[in-house]
Design a protein around this nucleic acid. Structure first.
Length: 296
DNA sequence: TACCAGGTAAAAA
DNA sequence: TTTTTACATGGT
C-alpha cells in the first residue's frame, strides 16, 4: 500500500465536497470522510482512497495498492479532487453579491469533483440527456455491472473497448434508448480508435473543445458545455439550456420560477470568468437545502 | 395514471 | 429553412 500526500491550493473542505457530490446521487450514501474510487491507471485497475488530513493549508492523503506508479496516482487524485483549483479569486468576486456572497461563505472550501476519466464523462452526459438524473444513474449502474470491472466492492467504469465489443442491443438492455445506445457506441469507437483524442483536450481552449465535441453524433450544445464544466472543470462554462441550472437560477437569482436560457446567462454574467463555478455553488446549495428538508 | 425529468437527431412541414 | 416528433427510466 502506497500512501501519498497532496497539497491542495487555497481553501479546500474535502468532506463538504463529498457531501455535495453524494447529494446528487439518488442512493443514500453512508456519511464517510473517505472517498473510495475505482480507477484504471495505465491499464491497471486499482482503488484509490482519498481523505483530508489537514485543513489549513489543506492536505489530502491518497492510498493505493499500486507501487511504482506514484506520479500517475498522484496525478489522477489531483484531477479527481481538483486540488489545483484556487477558489479565492471566485470568492473575491462573489463576496459582494447579495446571494452568492452568503452562499460562498456557507460552502467555504467547496470544489467540484471530477470523474477520473473524460470518456466516462461523455457517456454520463449522454445518459443524462432528457431524462432525470436518477433514471440516468440507474442506467449507468447497469452499464457498470454488465460491462465494468469489479474490484473490492466497487465498479470501475468500463473502458471504450468494453463498449465497442458489445452490440447496440446489449447497451439497450441496460436501459438506454436505441438512439443513445448508438451514440454511446459511436463515441466509444471514436475514442478507442484515437479519432477523438481525449488526452489532448486539456491543452485546448473551451471553444476548441466545444466545437470538436459538437462534431460527434450524440453530443449537442448541452452535452458539450456539461462536459466542459463538469468533466474538465472549466470554471466559466454554463450549459444555458440546462434544466437544473435554469431552475436554481430562477429560485435564487430570479423570481422563483425557472428562467429561460437567455435569462439564466444574464444572471450569471457578473461572475465571469467563474460563471460555471457560480452555477455549481447554487446547485450545491440547493441540493444541501433539499437534503436538510429546507427547500420549501 | 399521467407527467416531467440537467437533449438530440432526424423526419415532416 | 423551421417545426415537430420519438425516445428510455424513475420519481411524484
Amino acid at each position: 500500500m502506497t500512501v501519498l500526500t497532496i497539497s491542495s491550493v487555497g481553501p479546500h473542505d474535502f468532506e463538504l465536497c463529498l457531501r455535495v457530490a453524494r447529494s446528487f446521487s439518488p442512493d443514500p450514501f453512508p456519511v464517510s470522510p473517505v472517498l473510495r474510487s475505482a480507477v484504471r491507471i495505465k491499464d491497471h485497475l486499482t482503488v484509490l482512497e482519498m481523505r483530508q488530513v489537514r485543513s489549513d493549508p489543506p492536505v489530502l492523503e491518497v492510498r493505493a495498492d499500486l507501487p511504482g506508479r506514484k506520479s500517475e496516482v498522484m496525478q489522477v487524485a489531483r484531477w479527481i479532487t481538483f486540488a489545483d483549483l484556487d477558489l479565492r479569486p471566485f470568492y473575491r468576486l462573489a463576496a459582494s453579491h447579495s446571494v452568492l456572497g452568503p452562499i460562498t461563505k456557507a460552502l467555504h472550501g467547496l470544489k467540484p469533483m471530477r470523474p477520473a476519466s473524460l470518456f466516462e464523462m461523455l457517456v454520463t452526459a449522454i445518459t443524462e440527456q432528457q431524462i432525470s438524473l436518477a433514471a440516468a444513474y440507474r442506467i449507468r449502474t447497469r452499464i457498470m455491472e454488465r460491462l465494468g470491472d469489479p474490484i473490492d466492492g466497487l465498479w470501475a467504469f468500463p473502458s471504450p473497448g468494453r463498449f465497442t465489443e458489445r452490440s447496440v442491443a446489449d447497451l439497450m438492455a441496460c436501459g438506454l434508448s436505441q438512439r443513445k445506445a448508438e451514440y454511446v457506441k459511436g463515441v466509444a469507437e471514436k475514442v478507442a480508435s484515437g479519432l477523438l483524442a481525449l488526452d489532448r483536450l486539456e491543452g485546448m481552449s473551451d471553444e476548441e473543445i466545444r466545437s470538436l465535441l459538437l462534431q460527434v453524433r450524440g453530443l449537442g450544445p448541452w452535452s458539450a458545455e456539461y462536459f466542459l464544466v463538469r468533466g474538465m472543470g472549466r470554471p466559466d462554462r454554463v450549459p444555458a439550456n440546462d434544466l437544473g441550472i435554469r431552475s436554481v437560477a430562477g429560485r435564487y437569482l430570479g423570481q422563483g420560477r425557472r428562467l429561460s436560457p437567455e435569462g439564466t446567462m444574464k444572471k450569471f454574467s457578473p461572475f465571469r470568468p467563474y460563471r460555471g463555478l457560480a452555477a455549481f455553488y447554487l446547485l450545491a446549495y440547493g441540493r444541501l437545502q433539499k437534503a436538510l428538508g429546507n427547500d420549501r
